[in-house]
């Protein structure tokens, strides 16, 4: 790992100012960024830790809207009693990773096999940054890409709790990432189905399944659907066809356990 300057501001404003210098990079729990830097796949000249900003940590509920601070660890989300979202958080990585990794870091990285993006997209959550609010549907922009601007910080994520939800993950046992994962949520605007670990475009909604489930919310409603393997990830862990099949199977399991 190349050396860098490390700063740990205590306010969002200070962090934004620190990130304005060239090649500065925000640091959440570092559970992806530090390994990436060790491999010299990233070499920022300055790391701006967001873990010293007290206002960015913790879970709160106000007027029926849940807000999770961007620097909240997976372990804290797992313990927050948020139903399927807490279950999802409690199965990210391993216990040590969950004690460091943060929801903001995971979303900003947008790994195509990460768990959180599926939940955030299925819930129709709002990504709150230091200067705007971004709807989940406008946030994810392909593999490892988001619509965040340079130096923009995810300060929080907010959503209205669904009336029912379930996340089903087929775990890649070595990495603990989702080989494929499907989050199904019954929201005020209808059923939403989001898929991670499948498409080469990253997390996405399976709208055909949503239409079917809005008519008949049962696993059987998906039985007649098929998922095309075109554009699916293929690697040593699974072919595109295998992942396409997993999307349907996991969606059915998620519906059944809602």
């Amino acid at each position: 790992m190349y050396d860098f300057e490390f700063v740990k501001p205590s306010t969002v404003d200070e962090a934004v100012a620190a990130l304005s210098s060239e090649d500065a990079q925000a640091l959440g729990g570092g559970q992806t960024l530090i390994p990436t830097m060790k491999q010299r796949l990233a070499s920022p000249t300055k790391l701006v830790s967001l873990l010293g900003i007290a206002s960015m940590a913790g879970v709160s509920e106000n007027n029926g809207v849940v807000t999770i601070g961007g620097a909240t660890t997976h372990a804290d989300v797992a313990a927050a009693g948020l139903g399927a979202v807490s279950t999802l958080a409690g199965n990210i990585g391993d216990p040590a990773v969950r004690n460091r990794g943060t929801i903001g870091g995971s979303l900003a990285n947008n790994d195509p096999s990460a768990d959180y993006p599926a939940a955030i997209l299925a819930l129709g959550a709002t990504i709150v940054t230091n200067n705007r609010e971004i709807a989940a549907g406008d946030f994810f922009d392909g593999m490892f890409t988001t619509t965040l601007e340079e130096g923009e910080i995810i300060t929080a994520v907010s959503f209205t709790p669904p009336s029912a939800a379930s996340y089903q993950k087929f775990e890649q046992p070595a990495s603990h990432f989702a080989l494929t994962g499907v989050f199904v949520a019954k929201t005020a605007s209808g059923v939403r189905v989001a898929v991670t670990g499948a498409s080469e475009e990253g997390v996405h909604r399976w709208t055909t399944a949503e239409d079917a489930l809005n008519t008949n919310f049962s696993a059987d409603a998906l039985e007649g659907l098929s998922v095309s393997p075109d554009g699916m990830i293929a690697d040593l862990h699974g072919t595109a066809e295998y992942r396409a099949n997993l999307v349907k199977v996991l969606a059915q399991r998620a519906v059944a356990s809602c």
């Binding site: 570092g30 790391l47 460091r100 070595a174």
Partner: peptide
């Protein structure tokens, strides 16, 4: 590489992988 956990220590009572945390943190 953050996989094996041999470097596990506790920080503020929570287990973490010390090879994946900066000393300054």
């Amino acid at each position: 590489t953050s996989q094996c956990g041999a470097c596990t220590v506790h920080v503020a009572g929570k287990m973490v992988k010390s090879c994946t945390m900066l000393a300054l943190e």
